[in-house]
């Protein structure tokens, strides 16, 4: 996107299997190349968006019940939103969710990038075991580990209630336990694509390993940092099971917990509020995506070596 096109006319690009089924005709590629893209992307967009349209319609539905909700909005009313914001603790939940998600995303990106850097650039004892260990530890069914974490934090709550149950610090600590994960592999893969010549040049110029990391490599892997940050942000906003164990005080709860409780008993009549809350929860995620997508620019790597 950001990279200026090279001098060769109509730069070639990899084509997906679908396009390769028929012979590619050079002359018509300029038009048909984009036509199949649009047809395919429109079909996928429809698939992706129609359940979301249903949520929008249900949120605007003046009756606010599940059985009366349609795909296309039948009326527009802000009643569900007003009810949600004034009669429940939704604003408080919302703030809690945002604070947790932003802190966890920032911490995870930082910790994971540090680890990915050494996994990619250093050779040391335990490197292979560490990389495999990160994958394997995640294959353990997590719902039982919750029993252990619950017992652990029962003790911590007695000793230091500041980081115990009903606090965001305690929950954040548990989330950060998962900072080194598949995200580290993902980042390592990107560090691997940066040519080693960069490091060598920097070392000759007298950079320490920390300067090399913070000043040279991190700016070049911004796309993957942005992607991982987004993924962690979304996962934290959606996280449900661990939060339900930790946050029992209604004032400390997150949107996911609040909404789930809302429809647990009164599914039909609270459906409008549920849909409205779902939409409001999606807004920060979309905003973060919107903000980060400008970082997801291509050509950084090749730009760096060429320069």
């Amino acid at each position: 996107m950001a990279q200026p096109t090279t001098s060769s006319p109509a730069p070639p690009r990899p084509a997906p299997p679908a396009a390769a089924a028929g012979p590619v005709r050079r002359r018509s590629r300029r038009t048909s190349g984009h036509l199949w893209r649009h047809v395919f992307l429109l079909a996928m967009t429809a698939f992706a968006a129609f359940p979301v349209l249903f949520v929008v319609s249900a949120a605007l539905n003046p009756l606010g019940t599940l059985s009366s909700a349609q795909l296309i909005p039948t009326g527009a009313s802000a009643g569900n939103f007003v009810q949600l914001l004034t009669e429940t603790r939704f604003p408080r939940w919302y703030l809690n969710s945002l604070v947790l998600a932003v802190s966890n995303a920032a911490a995870t990106v930082f910790l994971s990038a540090l680890a990915a850097y050494v996994f990619s650039r250093f050779r040391f004892a335990g490197r292979r075991a560490g990389l495999y260990g990160l994958l394997i530890i995640q294959m353990f069914p997590q719902f039982l580990a919750i029993v252990a974490i619950y017992l652990m934090f029962s003790t911590i709550t007695d000793l230091r209630p500041e980081i115990g149950f009903d606090t965001h610090w305690g929950l954040l600590l548990v989330y950060m336990g998962g900072a080194l994960s598949i995200n580290t592999w993902l980042m390592k893969g990107f560090f691997d694509t940066l040519p080693i010549e960069l490091d060598e040049a920097a070392r000759v110029d007298g950079a320490t390993h920390a300067q090399m990391f913070f000043r040279i490599l991190v700016p070049l892997v911004t796309p993957v940092l942005a992607i991982v940050g987004l993924l962690v942000f979304i996962a934290t906003v959606n996280e449900f099971i661990m939060a339900s164990v930790f946050l029992r005080d209604p004032d400390s709860q997150t949107v996911a917990l609040g909404l789930a409780a809302m429809v647990a008993d009164q599914r039909d009549s609270n459906f409008g509020m549920f849909a409205a809350g779902t939409l409001l929860l999606a807004i920060p995620v979309l905003a973060v995506f919107w903000y980060l997508q400008r970082f997801i620019v291509e050509g950084l790597t090749s730009g760096a070596v060429k320069g």
């Binding site: 992307l41 996928m44 967009t45 992706a48 968006a49 359940p51 979301v52 249903f54 949520v55 979304i234 906003v237 959606n238 449900f240 949107v255 996911a256 909404l259 789930a260 429809v263 549920f274 779902t278 929860l281 999606a282 995620v285 979309l286 995506f289 919107w290």
Partner: peptide, 17 residues
Amino acid sequence: LLLVLPYAMPAFAMMLL
């Protein structure tokens, strides 16, 4: 933006939906 919608919506809510 539209294609990332399924991922941006809260997963637990969308499953129930």
